[in-house]
Design a protein around this nucleic acid. Structure first.
Length: 212
DNA sequence: CTAGGGTTACGG
DNA sequence: CCGTAACCCTAG
């Protein structure tokens, strides 16, 4: 039992960099990747980690993948399961957690939550990094900011753009925070409090430049 | 590649 | 239950 727990932990560990996984699979299995995903799905529902591991060896993936990447491998097909790519990572994590037991870290569910790598939610540091990048490179130069400040990060240029948009919105709301207490994440709230003026100034300048 | 509208999960 | 954050889609 102890061994099983260890094994599952290992199977479900989050890889350093998801991109490696996609590269591996893309190069090796091409477009069949998601089909394999469905097969994984049924196997997992049958008898858990053992099946996943069997699958792993049946497809001779050992040469290409670390076992620890397996957890991540569950992502791409989950995301395809309904209307396009709409399932979220935390969602399949929850399902995996239900299937394999509660030792798998989770963002919700009360009690302590072990922090995990590549958390979907932005950390304060990331936001500060983003602000730094934007103030040097300028708003709209997302791929530049990505290259210079987030080259090793999961965040893509689009993510940066989206996060900036969210930050600006949060800042504007905080500014007119007359009545309703605005619902903001803790990390975001801290950043907004500290950098609201700088963010809004940058944004205003950017809008001003667009006018001309 | 970016802007901006659209969709879904999260969390108070 | 509703607003926000994260992420997707795609025209230009």
């Amino acid at each position: 039992m102890e061994d099983d727990a260890m094994e599952i932990q290992q199977l479900l560990a989050v890889p350093e960099n998801e991109e490696n996984l996609y590269e591996c699979l893309g190069g090796t299995f091409g477009h069949d990747t998601h089909l394999m995903g469905y097969e994984f799905d049924s196997l997992i529902n049958q008898d858990g980690a053992a099946s996943v591991q069997k699958m792993f060896t049946d497809y001779e993936m050992e040469d290409y993948l670390e076992p620890s990447m397996l957890g991540c491998f569950l992502a791409p097909w989950r995301r395809r399961s309904r209307r396009g790519n709409h399932m979220r990572r935390s969602s399949w994590r929850l399902e995996v957690r239900q299937l394999f037991g509660s030792q798998y870290p989770c963002t919700r569910g009360g009690g302590k939550c072990r922090s995990r790598k590549n958390n979907d939610h932005w950390t304060e540091d990331e936001m500060i990094e983003l602000l730094d990048g934007v103030s040097r490179k300028g708003i709209g130069r997302w791929s530049k900011v990505k290259g210079d400040y987030f080259s090793t990060s999961i965040r893509t240029a689009v993510h940066l753009k989206d996060k900036w948009r969210n930050l600006v919105r949060a800042c504007k709301k905080a500014k007119n925070a007359s009545k309703k207490k605005v619902n903001v994440q803790k990390a975001t709230e801290v950043v907004v409090r500290r950098f609201r003026h700088r963010i809004l100034a940058l944004e205003a300048k950017h809008l001003g430049q667009k006018e001309k």
